[in-house]
Design a protein around this nucleic acid. Structure first.
Length: 855
RNA sequence: GGGCGAUUGGCUCAGUGGUAGAGCGCUACCUUGACACGGUAGAGGUCACUGGUUCGAACCCAGUAUCGCCCA
């Protein structure tokens, strides 16, 4: 058995242990094994990313799930990989180029893409190493990347199918445009934030219109009023003059207008606002684009070449000069869309883009959840998913980027549009060009659960591991990714991509605030792993993991986890120093009461933890494990073993086996969450190869209610004596001679060990002792008369008051006719027991007080 | 404006009808032969508010207030 030092040192253990796991090949799936399959695909982290607490959190849960399944005898595939993160990666490489004074256009498309690949090979995927640090048991031989040959083929294949089925189309629409990233964005890549802007009311001749974006008036093609708005019906159909440009535009009546907003009349700029675009379509209005892709004014005149944000005050000033401003509200707080990547204010822009026709796909994705083919945990998250999937607009999938899957569409010289099959030759020759744009990264990763297993080929992996068992992800990703995977995977396969979706909350700081760079409260999980070990971090995260609920963490909690890990270390160290070992077969039949008690508790723990793990109730499972380990096994059972271990002989031998059984089981139950320390300790304790492939504990033994009840009485007695000692100011280590009388007299040595007494069992208490009593046992302590009587009276009175309160409450309830006739039998019986116990305690305490007061 | 969720000890959270809990923090004592990353004892809550249902409500129902999230 290896030497175990007095404190656990994670730094010296974790690296070699992970390497050992890799050498043993324990994380690789083996489709030929004949064991039942269990699969999880990792939500692919971003190739530019590094491990943050959110990853650490979800990865810990996925690792715990797959480690437990592995121990349960499943053939586990936890499949690693990354996505290419179109915008983010392109930004990184463009910044690098900028340092050299170059732009991607200087390089040209092909050279730029080569450069990104080089960057990826050299610097990308830093996170994969960090994931090993955390101990993640991934099947590394199957690592995938969204831009791999196979996955790219899957993307082309699904695009082709969608196109042939009329589910992707190209159209000129208003899209969310980022003037900094120079690309279109989907609806969910836009964050609406309350922003202090301005609301300016402008005189348009006969009407006044209010707007937060005066600069767009250069592109106005109408003014709209509500059809039922009596104030303006006479103006509908007349022409107004747009100030500054002098253009004549009509007044139109449209249901969309809110008569209560401003004057009830709104300017209509179809090329720069999604609602206005709809109005424009309904009334056949022209669209005039006045801003270029960078948000710069293109209209000839005094405002040309001004950025939209510079043009705004310039135009207001010009209007003010002409006395056409009716009112200005500043600040005016309203929701403004920002690019979720770079924070730039999004510019709605009219452009030609590819879209996915969502409705038919969404219907299938929603049905799969309604019928229970895919189950959300917690169940309430399904409503969130359904509500969103059913209200989803068509999805803009083209991105004006170079890094990503280039849209597999070719345009011919005579207006032909060709989408070749993935294996087909692509059109070439005079006048043929491929679409310049790439696909949204979410489009590229939507098939991830199927394509990483080989789709579109019917591979053995796909056959065996699809549908995957669980997807673990945060509720903030349900819309981004879960919905898209559900749509695409159910479109190409008869089955759903995953049977269960375990939804987690978000990691927050210790005060419950969202972690963000601007708040300065971002924590690097690597720092905490350096300081306290990977297990401590994992334990902290798992112990806070209530399904779908946010998780606040702070350094103090990681310290607490480190303390627990260290306690586990020292308890096992105690056991191994005392010769604990795992029984080969059955335990001996002549177990002591403490043995039967701890085995009974262990058995209950195992049952509980099993159910909790199955329901993704990590917080509760960890809580049960923690309390069993610390409050029962370590604080009571280990203390109790000191008696037989000291005694030696058969009693000691039996104790070593029970202790070995308990720790062996506990370490295995803990292993999914804290893999490193449990592996080292389990190997030291059992001499086995690795706990990673040890079997999951099944039935431990029978529940023993008798032993549990007897131990509870012993605990009560011990606590009473300790309380007495503390009250009397006795030094904790001082061994006090004592005599015990009553039904717990059998446990005199144990009481002595636990309460620092030297105890003799007797039939009667000698006179002159200070007496501590519980139900049917009395313990007399020989303090040689030096008893603090007043303090003792105070202590007893307090207990008496509590007992009297309990007696009165239960008596009152038992006198209630309604209670007796309507409450269930077991509640009535329990109340009677409580009442009796309280009555006994009152009598006992009164007697004790009387004795004291008389002495 | 619409939807969802929350409100329990100093902090962060469990607790779905029958004796109010945990972790951390706090107080006192203790370096005893697994562990001071430890041990023992202890203090601390009218479960946001109002009303209702019930023999009995932190829990169920209605309303109010405050906060958070998502969507417009």
């Amino acid at each position: 058995m290896p030497e175990l030092g007095t404190a656990y040192d994670p730094a010296s253990v974790e690296g070699p242990t992970y390497q050992r796991w890799m050498d043993l090949g324990v994380f690789e799936a083996d489709p030929t094994s004949g064991r039942p399959p269990f699969a999880i695909v990792i939500p692919p982290p971003n190739v530019t990313g590094s491990l943050h607490l959110g990853h650490a959190f979800q990865h810990t849960l996925m690792d715990a799930l797959s480690r437990r399944r592995r121990m349960q005898g499943f053939d586990v595939l936890w499949l690693p990989g990354m996505d290419h993160a179109g915008i983010a990666t392109q930004n990184v490489v463009e910044r690098e180029l900028a340092k050299e004074g170059k732009s991607r256009r200087d390089l040209g498309r092909e050279a730029f893409v080569t450069r990104v690949w080089q960057w990826k090979e050299e610097y990308g995927g830093k996170i994969l190493g960090q994931m090993r640090r955390l101990g993640e048991g991934l099947a590394w031989s199957r690592e995938r990347f969204t831009m791999d040959e196979g996955l790219s083929r899957a993307v082309r294949t699904v695009f082709k199918r969608l196109h042939d089925d009329g589910l992707v189309y190209r159209a000129e629409r208003i899209t969310n445009w980022c003037p900094r990233c120079l690309t279109a964005l989907s609806d969910i890549e836009v964050e609406h934030r309350d922003t202090a802007g301005e609301l300016v009311s402008i005189c348009y001749g006969a009407l006044t219109v209010a707007t937060t974006r005066p600069e767009t008036m250069l592109g106005d093609t109408a003014v709209a009023v509500h059809p039922d708005d009596d104030r303006y019906t006479h103006l509908v159909g007349t022409l107004l003059t747009v100030p500054l440009t002098g253009r004549q535009i009509p007044v139109v009546a449209d249901e969309h207008v809110d008569p209560a907003f401003g004057s009830g009349a709104v300017k209509v700029t179809p090329a720069h606002d999604p609602n206005d675009f709809e109005i424009g379509l309904r009334h056949g209005l022209p669209s005039i684009t006045v801003l270029d892709e960078r948000g710069v004014v293109t209209v000839p005149g005094p405002f040309q070449d001004l950025d939209r944000l510079e043009a705004r005050p310039a135009i207001v000033a010009a209007l003010r000069e002409q006395q056409l401003i009716v009112e200005e509200q500043r600040p005016y707080v309203h929701a403004v869309g920002h690019c979720s990547r770079c924070g730039t204010v999004v510019e709605p822009r009219l452009s030609l883009q590819w879209f996915v026709r969502v409705a038919p796909l969404a219907r299938r994705a929603a049905d799969a959840v309604r019928t229970g083919d895919t189950v959300f945990v917690p169940a309430a998250m399904a409503d969130r998913y359904l509500g969103w999937v059913e209200g989803m607009h068509d999805w803009c999938i083209s991105r004006q980027l170079w890094w990503g899957h280039r849209i597999p569409v070719w345009y011919g010289p005579d207006g032909e549009v060709v989408v070749p099959d993935a294996d087909e030759e692509t059109p070439s020759g005079e006048g043929w060009v491929q679409d310049e744009d790439v696909l949204d990264t979410w489009f590229s990763s939507a098939l991830w659960p199927a394509s990483t297993l080989g789709w579109p080929e019917q591979t053995p992996d796909l056959e065996r591991f699809y549908p995957t068992d669980v997807l673990v992800t945060g509720y903030d990703i349900i819309f981004f990714w879960v919905a898209r995977m559900m749509m695409f995977c159910t479109y190409v396969q008869p089955q759903v991509p995953f049977r269960q979706v375990a939804v987690t909350g978000l990691v927050r700081d210790g005060r419950g605030r969202k972690m963000s760079k601007s708040a300065g409260n971002v924590v690097d999980p690597l720092d905490w792993m350096d300081a306290y070990g990977a297990d401590a971090l994992r334990w902290t995260l798992a112990r806070g993991a209530n399904p779908g609920v946010d998780l606040p963490v702070s350094e103090e909690w990681v310290q607490g986890s480190r303390n627990f890990v260290n306690k586990l270390w020292n308890a096992t160290r105690f056991a191994s120093l005392n010769g604990a070992r795992v029984p080969e077969g059955e335990l001996p039949g002549d177990l002591s009461m403490p043995d039967r008690w701890i085995l009974s508790r262990l058995s209950r723990l195992r049952d509980e933890v099993d159910v909790l793990y199955d329901g993704f109730e990590f917080a509760k499972a960890c809580d049960s494990l923690f309390h069993f380990a610390w409050d029962e096994l370590f604080d009571w059972y280990i203390e109790l073993t000191k008696v037989p271990l000291r005694e030696g002989g058969a009693a000691a031998e039996r104790t070593r086996l029970v202790l070995g059984r308990c720790l062996d089981t506990l370490l295995r139950l803990l292993h999914p969450v804290v893999p490193f320390v449990t592996d080292v300790l389990w190997r030291a304790l059992t001499g086995g190869t690795t706990v990673v492939t040890a079997s999951w504990p099944t039935v431990v033994g029978a529940h023993d209610a008798t032993a549990e009840a007897e131990l509870r009485r012993l605990q009560e007695l011990v606590v009473e004596v300790r309380r007495f000692r503390a009250q009397q100011g006795l030094r904790p280590g001082r061994r006090v001679p004592a005599t015990i009388v009553g039904d717990l007299a059998l446990w005199a040595p144990q009481l002595g060990a636990l309460a620092d007494l030297t105890v003799t069992a007797a039939d009667q208490l000698p006179a002159g002792l200070a007496v501590v009593t519980t139900a049917a046992t009395r313990v007399g302590l020989d303090l040689s008369g030096a008893v603090d009587v007043d303090g003792e009276i105070l202590r007893l009175r307090k207990q008496l008051a509590a007992a009297e309160r309990e007696r009165d409450q239960t008596a009152h309830r038992l006198a209630d006719e309604g209670f007796l006739t309507k409450a269930p039998q077991h509640v009535i019986a329990a109340t009677r027991d409580r009442a009796a116990a309280a009555g006994d305690a009152v009598a006992r305490l009164r007697q004790q007080l009387q004795d004291l007061e008389e002495s």
